[in-house]
Design a protein around this nucleic acid. Sequence first.
DNA 1: TTGAAAGCGCTAACAT
DNA 2: ATGTTAGCGCTTTCAA
Lengths: 334, 334
Amino acid sequence: MSTATVSRVLSDPDKVRQKTHDLVMEAVRRSGYIPNSTAQKLRTRRTMNVLVIAPRLTNPVFAEILRGVDDELTQSGYGIIIGNLDNRREREARYVDLALSRQVDGILLLTGYIPENGARSMRDSGLPIVAMCAAIHEDGIPNIVVQDREAARQAVEYLARLGHRKFGYISGTLGSIIEVERFAGFQEGIAAAGFSQDDVVRWEGPFVFSTGVSAAEAFLQMKDRPTGIFAACDESAIGFIKRVRAERIRVPQDVSVIGFDGIEYADYTEPTLTTFRQPLHELGCVGADVLLKLIHNAMKPEDWSIRLPVTLLERETTGPVLHKDYKSLRRSAV
Amino acid sequence: MSTATVSRVLSDPDKVRQKTHDLVMEAVRRSGYIPNSTAQKLRTRRTMNVLVIAPRLTNPVFAEILRGVDDELTQSGYGIIIGNLDNRREREARYVDLALSRQVDGILLLTGYIPENGARSMRDSGLPIVAMCAAIHEDGIPNIVVQDREAARQAVEYLARLGHRKFGYISGTLGSIIEVERFAGFQEGIAAAGFSQDDVVRWEGPFVFSTGVSAAEAFLQMKDRPTGIFAACDESAIGFIKRVRAERIRVPQDVSVIGFDGIEYADYTEPTLTTFRQPLHELGCVGADVLLKLIHNAMKPEDWSIRLPVTLLERETTGPVLHKDYKSLRRSAV
DNA sequence: TTGAAAGCGCTAACAT
DNA sequence: ATGTTAGCGCTTTCAA
């Protein structure tokens, strides 16, 4: 019995006689033989691993996307090598090298940009790349994202319909494509509802709780405060609400807040957070699926870029404006 | 110039002449050569990868530990292959095979048990294993855990000192070693403070928000309710508080709650959660460090098992008991 | 249907 | 200090 026959039995059982097959399988079972995957990788030039680069792991948004990715990849026998940047760009270098040294068959990027190491970029690896969550506008890179812009626009519409006339925007990480999209949508909404830049306040900071806290502190200093706030992520919305309520500002009576993401916490805040739910698990599945197709050259052009819808969850942090001058007159939501 | 020389320049520069070194490096730079890591792995029999098995990724506790692991491993040039069980034990099999086929040099287990695939266990791989977060009592497996039992015991003491006389315990995942330890500590505390099983109520469920919600619903049905609650994790503490407050139960005036973990979100609840902060990042670093030592046979016996301390964060969900009969008489905390 | 043999790209022992 | 050579364990022609 040659090693070649064993190999055939294990990889393509139809190529051998039934009897040989049984003999080999019995021996395999008894000896507990498991092929050395490194040797397989070297020989076949496929690693059966995918690299996933995430800006941060402690953000539940990424964790949830990763679940989807994992479900899809595991099903196809692929493994995940996780590249956690932990919000530090200097960590990219290591993963660029990892791609360049062909330790993976494909790359999923949650970053919104292509990681680089000095002069070399992940693109130089020639490996298939799919951008998820945050778009990368380059040839040959499919984007699997949600309708950030549309949702942000819808947030303003929703607040305007509730009677709000002055708006606040709590940003995400500056320069991030997601932030850019959401702010653009917010501005479109402002314009569409007939408001101007005078009716808008913007507070900046990364996608974390404390950004909402700082925004709240700036908010509290204002004399003529906005009453409708859109936060580019749930965490900063939660930070904002927590901070203003500590100063006896009522939500939503004094200020309405809409978040973005639909993380699980957002359903356990007081009041529960009105927000847009992203289909995070699906995002992960679809992204992984597209990458696998790319790896197997089975990509249909119409699948290239996908924009998944988000859902507005109307909960307790938004409500009609109570005008100060006529406190008794509560405008009904149109 | 032979391939062997190039190999030496790249792996052990001191073994070649300075001039040769420079020549090779120049050529490497110009050609953009990067060694094929799979071939290196096959030849050296080291994969430079570590497998981390986590019960679930969306739990911020695991995400935080993973950060520590990542920091430590990255520094030593090791990569992480993530094995997310997503709370489904049938997913273990794949990772057992991965270990058996030697795709990694070592294994970090956050599970509290050794994953199995039918008759075969990860131990059969012969790879070094370190248990983190949840202990595994087997020869040759170092445990890096926190003082679960001591903390739970301390929680009861703390509540008793505040005047509480009837206690509630919200469990974690049944059968989990962490849950067992925390409940044991809780019971020790009850006994040490001179209380009996009649003074204790226990509600069961996994380590998730909704366990706290169900516990709250059972709590609300009771006539003689406990006033001091210890939850085996922050998420269920938060779920509990959210649910009882919806029924106008005041925290901490009517019921005090202590959590466990110290997740970031626990600082953004209303009121902010009293809880034990686990040194999660450190747990990850230490666990990874011990594993690396095991891999390099550099383990000193005294480092084998480590129990890190937790810190009680006294925040707003705990307070002195207000006895119903003498509502005006507020006992001071001793 | 099976076996023999080449070779994936690298490193390490040995030879020079 | 460098080159030659023999594998690491597998898969895949090619030949039988």
